[in-house]
Design a protein around this nucleic acid. Structure first.
Length: 881
RNA sequence: GGAUCUUUAGCUCAGUUGGGAGAGCACUACCUCGACAAGGUAGGGGUCGCAGGUUCAAGCCCUGCAAGGUCCACCA
């Protein structure tokens, strides 16, 4: 009877996904509609680093964006999703240098130009990997707009921004203590430093007073920096040390006389209350040095080795020097003790080495005003909406406490700073082009922090500084930015103040923040732990659709999510369910065409009910997606498909398709197809591949589901009666199944059924659906009436509107059945008590909404009815004994 | 030190303006019926971390505490 179809029994993701993405790209489905009457909707991708493969976090981040943009596209918006990648200065340069080292060379041998060529080759290689991965995940980005943070347009924009900020005195150059990465040999901003607790030591040592009157005891965790000490400090109110202020101590090992100064910064309670001051190697000491006009003595080279200012320690690595300094002090009897301690030490986010605070001349962005404006903007209509909202506070707190931003990096791979120094006068020139007498000037060797260019991403991708072009006019500001909460400081904040400064509007209306992906044990995925999971492996095993389903449904917004193979199994499983339900529909369509779909025919209760449920689902899913609550929306879809469509509608449709008239069959086929079609459309943003595959197999109009219209609510499908009646039917069927299960009567054996209904209306309704009840309950004889004869030896159940009795001569264990019913009686009794209690509370009746009170009254009536019925049945059973 | 998140079934987690606790997996029993056994049917399992408070009503709001996580700051 059913048609043979070309769909495997099991869902096979590799087969389903093959070739689809290429087809979509070929059909230009990811390009904007260019329909000016449509509302625009734009997203720019957070550009992944060109340093390697995408990880699961990227898959999550981009899948969320794809869900949003695909839904908006189906809803008729003129959508654009701009892809691109980040040059990732330090990270990429480090990788390229690693590769050069393998080849037995290094960047200095190659020279700047050759090195950059190598870096560009690297970029091309990795960019194509990344594009392949995007394709596998199914991302509907518009490749014709792809950008790179180091391309020509970006470079122009970056230069303009630098020069403008310089002219507005929001960029300055100066000598300060910065975080220095001795491996990469570059400055780092504060947020590129990770503080980690490590085992270290507190070295207590003696500094002899120059006049020979004794010693001051000083403690430090970095003894090698003493070589650069230019003072020691005590608190001005510290009685212990009053006498020493203004005297000098003899710096051990260096034999320099350095002053004892008084400064409020010193904490009398901490350590000995005496602090060594190394203005060139500690940010606080630098400040104290400024206040007391102390010399800044730099004792280290760029690579972390000691320099000539370190005397005999010159050339030693800083950690080697530490050991030697300690040993020498010990020998001189100046080492008091070494106290083991765990303390927090800054590490380079990129290279992992211990960061050295170091005096250095760098470029900075002055943050005060930019931060103030960003904060003030949050109080206007132009504010950025954070989802979840709590992250707005994270953003604000950071902005309120932000320090000036070190933007120069001692690298080659990046935007070279548009500043030139006069070869003779040392005069500084900053401009978009080189000075005219170029031969007399030398350009700053350094490049800008990667984040300086990524901060401009939302508007540079739209063509800025050309603000007259169509993309900028139409798609900027963008609608939604999706990224992890871990880069609010690095990226989100900086995009916000730069956009406000240069485009006078927010860069995006919404920012959706997600968490991190953890491994099955809840640990962060990291290279050092080796617990990373390659999303491509997951896709090969389960399909991109299953991965996307897991990622969008695995957790609540802003929460971290644990990767779980178990959940991947159940994702696959869900898709397999959809697959098989679709197979059922397709098998039963025979020659049914798109034109044959007819929703106006006479409908069964199930028909009306499933359309009403579809309507509710459409409304709910649309609403949840609007709030970026994909998990909640997904759950509604899951329940609708599995519990309503598969468990009930499909099962009931079998009755019509087997026994119904041609007209009835047509309506059923129409609704089976229509509901499946609508459901596939709702699912498509989350699982694009399998929905396309199935959609192509069912009667449809249009070349791809990608461009199909998103479902909308149909008021004419609303039907409260159908919902109530269907619930009665379902409850009745479940009650019978329950009893059959109790007495171990499988469906293959008939059992008579007597249904005593409360009203003529219920009688009519159940009689009309008799064939469905027969299908699900397999009764020998089925009686439905308001007055019925019930034999003594029966098992019974009561549902809303009806009582059902199953005569089971010889099968009813009277004792057990009484016990079962008494348990039920207790249940109803406690429900009645609860309802009575509430209704007896005058405050409840007067304060609670009428609907809530009325619902409580209805419940009480219903439960009392059920209680009475169960009690009657128990009495009967007692007679039987 | 500051901020923030988490604590709900054996495990992993949902629970959206406060109005009778849910899912997946695991568990028990039964069922190969022409979509699906990676399935179906029925079922067991929770003082929603603890203590107070607000309210007619609290998993949800407020306060405090405990445990675990994360971020920021400090650490001479």
């Amino acid at each position: 009877m059913a048609k043979e179809i070309e769909m495997s029994t099991k869902y096979q993701p590799n087969q389903v996904e093959a070739g689809k993405y290429e087809k979509w790209v070929e059909l230009d489905l990811f390009k904007p509609s260019e329909d000016d009457s449509a509302e625009p909707y734009s997203i720019v991708i957070p550009p992944p680093n060109v340093t390697g493969k995408l990880h699961l976090g990227h898959a999550w981040d981009t899948a969320l964006q794809d869900i949003i943009i695909r839904q908006k596209r189906m809803q008729g918006y003129d959508t654009v999703w701009v892809p691109g990648m980040d040059h990732a200065g330090i990270a990429t340069q480090a990788k390229v240098e690693e590769r050069l080292a393998e080849q037995g060379t290094n960047r200095h041998e190659l020279g700047r130009e050759k090195f950059l060529e190598e870096a560009w080759n690297w970029k091309e290689e990795y960019a194509s990997n990344i594009r392949e991965q995007w394709a596998k995940v199914g991302l509907s980005v518009d490749y014709s707009r792809e950008r790179f943070t180091l391309d020509e347009g970006l470079n122009k924009a970056v230069t303009k921004v630098f020069v403008d900020l310089y002219n507005k005195e929001k960029i300055y150059r100066g000598e300060y203590i910065i975080n220095w990465d001795p491996k990469a040999m570059t400055a780092l901003s504060d947020i590129e430093v990770d503080h980690k607790d490590i085992q270290g030591a507190f070295y207590h040592m003696k500094y002899p007073l120059a006049d020979g009157s004794g010693f001051l005891e000083i403690a430090t965790t970095r003894p090698e920096t003493m070589l650069g000490d230019t003072a020691v400090a005590v608190h001005p109110d510290d009685e212990r040390y009053q006498q020493y202020i203004g005297k000098t101590v003899l710096l051990p090992l260096m034999d320099r006389e350095i002053p004892v100064v008084a400064d409020d910064y010193v904490d009398m309670e901490f350590g000995t209350g005496v602090v060594k001051i190394t203005p060139a190697h500690d940010p606080n000491d630098f400040e104290i040095g400024n206040r007391h006009d102390l010399e800044r003595l730099n004792v280290m080279n760029r690579d972390g080795s000691m320099n000539k200012n370190a005397g005999k320690y010159e050339g030693l690595d800083r950690f080697k020097a530490r050991k030697e300094v300690v040993a020498d002090l010990d020998e001189l009897g100046l080492l008091i003790k070494v106290e083991e301690m765990v303390h927090s030490v800054g590490h380079s986010e990129r290279t992992g080495v211990v960061v050295e605070p170091r005096l250095s001349t760098q470029w900075f962005v002055k943050m005060e005003q930019l931060a103030e404006e960003a904060l003030a903007n949050q109080k206007t209509d132009n504010k950025i909406n954070f989802a979840p909202e709590r992250f707005e506070k994270t953003f604000e707190t950071w902005m309120e406490n932000v320090h000036d931003w070190v933007i120069s990096r001692q690298l080659w791979w990046g935007h070279q700073i548009p500043a030139w120094y006069h070869n003779e006068t040392g005069e500084v020139y900053v401009g978009e082009t080189a000075p005219e007498d170029a031969e007399n000037w030398t350009q700053d060797e350094d490049v800008l922090d990667t984040w300086f260019s990524s901060a401009l991403w939302p508007f540079t991708t739209m063509g800025w500084p050309d603000t007259d072009n169509r993309d900028f006019q139409r798609y900027y500001p963008t609608n939604t930015l999706v990224t992890g909460y871990d880069i609010i400081f690095f990226w989100v904040s900086r995009m916000i103040f730069q956009a406000l400064e240069f485009t006078e509007t927010r860069p995006f209306e919404n920012v959706l923040l997600h968490g991190l992906i953890r491994d099955e044990d809840g640990r962060k995925m990291s290279k050092s732990l080796g617990n990373g999971i390659d999303p491509m492996d997951v896709i090969d095993e389960y399909g991109a659709d299953a991965l996307r389903w897991f990622l969008s449904n695995g957790s609540a917004p802003g929460q971290d999510v644990r990767f779980s193979y178990e959940k991947m199994d159940s994702s696959w499983n869900f898709i397999n369910k959809i697959w098989n339900a679709s197979r059922y529909v397709i098998m039963n369509l025979e020659d049914f065409e798109y034109e044959d779909i007819q929703l106006d025919g006479e409908k069964t209760l199930a028909d009306q009910w499933i359309l009403a449920r579809l309507n509710e689902t459409v409304a709910h899913v649309t609403d949840q997606f609007e709030k970026f609550e994909f998990g909640e929306g997904g759950r509604a879809l899951y329940n609708f498909i599995w519990n309503d469509y598969c468990d009930w509608y499909i099962e009931m449709s079998k009755e019509i398709l087997n026994e119904g008239t041609e007209e009835q069959k047509r309506t059923t086929r129409s609704i089976l197809t229509y509901v499946l079609d609508q459901t596939l459309r709702l699912l498509h943003p989350i699982m694009p591949f399998v929905t396309e595959e199935i959609w192509q197999h069912i009667p449809h109009e249009g070349e791809s589901i990608v461009a199909a219209a998103y479902p909308v609510v149909h008021p004419e499908f609303e039907n409260a009666d159908a919902r109530d009646n269907m619930n009665t039917v379902i409850e009745l069927i479940k009650a019978v199944r329950n009893i059959r299960s109790e007495v171990n009567r499988p469906l293959s054996q008939t059992v008579d059924m007597i249904v005593k209904v409360n009203s003529e209306a219920d009688k009519e309704m159940l009689t009309a659906n008799k064939s469905f009840i027969v299908r699900f309950c397999n009764p020998g004889e089925l009686t439905i009436d308001t007055e019925v004869d019930v034999p003594n030896e029966v098992m019974s159940a009561i549902v809303k509107g009806a009582e059902v009795f199953l005569p089971l001569q010889g099968l009813v264990n009277v004792e057990e059945e009484i016990a079962r019913l008494e348990k039920e009686l207790d249940k109803w009794q406690s429900e009645i008590n609860r309802a009575k209690g509430k209704l007896g509370n005058e405050k409840f009746v007067s304060n609670a909404p009428d609907a809530v009170v009325q619902a409580e009254r209805d419940k009480q009536v219903e439960y009392e009815k059920r209680y009475q019925a169960v009690q009657d049945q128990i009495a009967k059973l007692h007679e039987l004994k």
